[in-house]
């Protein structure tokens, strides 16, 4: 960890004002990603601005809308009884992530901005990592890549995007509320992250001085038929090998609307829109669920140790859809 100047911000405005474009600056919220990567010398801020006192920690639920403040702790959002009932996918994606202690620390904005778990990224003694050192190569391609992405990756980077909660946000068409030097703006959550392409070091569309203030989304009655299914080696405290966030609007036995997002298998938050389309108007049964699952992974590009992921991913989608179909709406 390199030495840094430590400052506290008490409002979004003071946080942005404290930001220095000419010095590497990091915002500190829960710290569960930042401190981890600073100790590993992967992230080297010269200034750290503590934003834990700037507010943005309310949860607002109305008849048809939800707003989650950026600084809300995962544990507090997960414990919301009304949210559990009305959008189970959302609270499940939080409850199945990390550990009790980490969920008490980590904020919702920090969660969606967490960095990949790729071991070649996290260990600076590996010289080839395009995400960490642009142009240096990718050691994971020919290395040990059991955790790596089969969707949305590129020839420059196959790192997996690790968040569970982000899959719920992208599935539910959330928007992100952002503030920076140039003022406030809103963008669809699906536009927050960018696929690695040739520039895997660029992970989001946020400007360096921008802060997330919160997430907003419509809530509709049918969203109570939703769930987050996470498949992993052990039963808790592990990142997903594959996961699926699914929500279904069913009308007279046929699907009117489907939402499917995939975790653990893709380079960015991943919405399987073609698979969703394939379900519209169909009855949910083994065949239709398998069809949707096949479409979701039609373009998967596996490598040596993650060759199992397309099949695991398809089984996860099918299982999640059938489980959701069996739920009481």
């Amino acid at each position: 960890m390199r030495p840094f100047i430590f400052e506290r911000a008490t409002s979004p405005e003071s946080a942005i004002a404290a930001f220095h474009a000419d010095r590497a600056t990091s915002f500190l919220a829960g710290g569960t990603t930042l401190l981890d990567l600073m100790k590993l010398d992967v992230v080297r801020p010269e200034r750290v601005i503590d934003i834990n006192a700037l507010g943005a920690n309310e949860i607002e639920i109305s008849e048809d809308r939800l707003r989650l403040g950026a600084s809300v702790r995962m544990a507090d959002a997960e414990a919301q009884e009304e949210l559990r009932r009305r959008v189970p996918m959302l609270t499940q994606s939080l409850a199945l992530a990390a550990s009790t202690q980490l969920r008490h620390m980590a904020t919702l904005a920090g969660n969606v901005l967490q960095r990949t778990r790729c071991p070649y990224f996290r260990d600076v003694s590996w010289s080839a990592c395009n995400k960490r050192l642009p142009g240096s190569g990718c050691a994971a391609m020919a290395g040990f890549n059991r955790q790596h992405a089969v969707l949305g990756a590129s020839d420059a980077c196959i790192a997996t995007y690790p968040s569970d909660f982000a899959q719920a946000l992208i599935a539910l068409d959330a928007t992100v509320d952002v503030v920076g030097r140039r003022g406030r703006r809103q963008l669809p959550f699906a536009k927050l992250h960018v696929p690695p392409g040739r520039t895997p070091e660029v992970e989001t569309t946020l400007a360096p001085d921008e802060l997330i203030l919160g997430f907003e989304m419509p809530i509709e009655p049918w969203m109570s038929r939703s769930l987050y299914l996470k498949i992993r080696d052990r039963d808790s405290y592990e990142f997903a090998l594959a996961s699926a966030a699914v929500a279904l609007e069913v009308d007279g036995g046929a699907v009117r609307q489907a939402r499917i997002a995939l975790g653990g298998v893709a380079a960015v938050p991943w919405r399987a829109r073609e698979a969703e389309q394939a379900l519209i108007g169909r009855v949910l049964d083994e065949a239709s669920c398998q069809l949707a699952a096949d479409i979701a992974f039609a373009k998967a590009q596996p490598r040596e140790h993650n060759a199992y992921k397309p099949l695991l991913g398809r089984q996860t989608v099918a299982r999640a859809l059938l489980q959701a179909a069996a739920m009481e709406a």
């Binding site: 503590d50 834990n52 009790t100 202690q101 980490l102 008490h104 620390m105």
Partner: peptide, 27 residues
């Protein structure tokens, strides 16, 4: 572990369990 992966450093902060290894004392 010093990286939030084992829980041995758990303490309470305002009554809630957190990991002291991933917490800056200044914060």
């Amino acid at each position: 572990c010093d990286h939030g992966q084992c829980g041995a450093c758990t303490v309470h902060l305002d009554g809630e369990p957190i990991l002291s290894c991933l917490t800056l004392v200044a914060s």
